[in-house]
Design a protein around this nucleic acid. Sequence first.
DNA 1: GCATGTGAATGGATTCACAGCT
DNA 2: AGCTGTGAATCCATTCACATGC
Lengths: 220, 220
Amino acid sequence: MPNDRPTNHEAISELTTGRLSVYLRCLTYLQSAGYETVSSGDLAERFHLNSAQIRKDLNCLGEFGTRGVGYNVPRLKDHLIHELGLDRIRRVLIAGAGNLGMALADYGGFNGGGFEIAAIIDNDETKIGRKSRSGFEVLAWDDLVAIVREHRVDIGVVAVTADAAQKVYDAFADAGINAVLNFAPTQLRARPGVKLKSVDLRINLESLSFYLKNVEDDGV
Amino acid sequence: MPNDRPTNHEAISELTTGRLSVYLRCLTYLQSAGYETVSSGDLAERFHLNSAQIRKDLNCLGEFGTRGVGYNVPRLKDHLIHELGLDRIRRVLIAGAGNLGMALADYGGFNGGGFEIAAIIDNDETKIGRKSRSGFEVLAWDDLVAIVREHRVDIGVVAVTADAAQKVYDAFADAGINAVLNFAPTQLRARPGVKLKSVDLRINLESLSFYLKNVEDDGV
DNA sequence: GCATGTGAATGGATTCACAGCT
DNA sequence: AGCTGTGAATCCATTCACATGC
C-alpha cells in the first residue's frame, strides 16, 4: 500500500526539479512510442543518465515503481505532470517588446504544453500596438497591474535591457506576480516569495569562449 | 613577486567560470563608475555574493589582490577578459532561422563584446535569402562546411526543433566547430572535444510552475 | 530473478576562520 | 588595521551497493 507518504516539496532541490522535467520529457516520448513500463536502468541507458539518481529523484514524489518490474509509463508521466503543476494553464506576461521578447512570444515552448502568453508589454510608445508574427499585440507598460489582474498572470518574463531589469522585477512583484524568468544580463535582487530564475545568454557564451581559449592555448 | 604561478585551467570548474563572467560584469560597471580598487567584501555586499567565494574564485587565476587593500579594478578586469578568452573575436553561426534563431542574431549580447554573428543557416528553401531585422541574410544549410571555413566560425548555436538538434550538433562537430550552444529542448549526446552547453527554456518554465504549484497548495 | 528504495560512501562546492602580508 | 589567500569544516549532490519486496 504505497503512497500515503506526503510528498515533501520543501526537500526537493532545484537540481532535482530540473531533472524531473527531463524525465517527464523522456516519458512523454516513451509513451508515444508505446511503452507501458520502463526501468530506471532503461531510462538511464537510453537518455544518458544515472539510474541511481533517477530512482532517488522519483522517490522524492513517493513510491511509484514496482520492484522487479520498473515504472508504469503513463502513470508516472501523469504524476510528474501533476507534481510539476503542469495540469493547469500558466499565463505568461512578457515585459520588453524587443527582438528577444517578441521571439519568446512566438516561441513554441511558451505556447502550449501548459503555458500560454497572456500579453507583451513595453513602455516605448512606438512599439505599443505592434503585433508579433503570430499576432500578439504589444500593450502599454502602464497597464501592468490591470493586465495582471485581468489575465490572471502567473509568470513574468523580463526581456528588457540590463539597466531596466530590476525595476521590471520589482513592478512584477508589486503587481502580485510570484514567479519571474529573467533574460537580462544582470544580477537581480530577488524578494522573498517572488521566485526568480535567470537565463544569462552572455554567461553561456563566455563559458564557451573560456573553453575554446584553453584548447587553443593547450594546442600550441 | 606574484604571478609566476601558472593558472591551472583544468582545475577551474564550470560553476567557477560562470561566476568569473559575473565578476567581469561587476568590474566593468565599477570601472565605468570610476573605482580604482575594490575589496572582495565590497563586491560581495554590492552584488549579493559571498566574499570568501570571490577570493577563492579569483585566486584560481593567480594572486591578483593586495592584502590590506583589495583588487585593482582595471587590472583585474583586463585579466579576466584575457582568461575568459574575450580578447579576441568569437564568430557565431546560428542554425535555424525560426523566431528564436532570428531573434538571437539580432540580440545585442551576440553582437559586440567579443562576439559577432558569422551567419544564419537553414534548410528550409522558403527561409533562405530572407533577412533579419538588422540585416543578416539566411544562408543555405548545405553550405555549412564552406561557411565554417570561410568565416572561421568558433561557436555554433542550435536553434532548430528538438528532433533535428542532434543532427545539427553532429554536423557542427564534423565541420570542425568545437563549441556549441543548444536551445532545443532535448538531451543531446556530446562528443569529446566538442563542448556543449544547453539553455532549456522549457525546464526553466516548468521549474517556476513547480514553485507556483507548491505555494498554491501550501496556501490552501 | 530482478528492479526498486535507501543507508552509507564518496566527491564537490561553499563557507568559515585565521595566518600572513601590506 | 585591514584584506587577501587558504587549510579546515560544513554542506549538498551524486554514486555505490545491497536489503527489501514483487
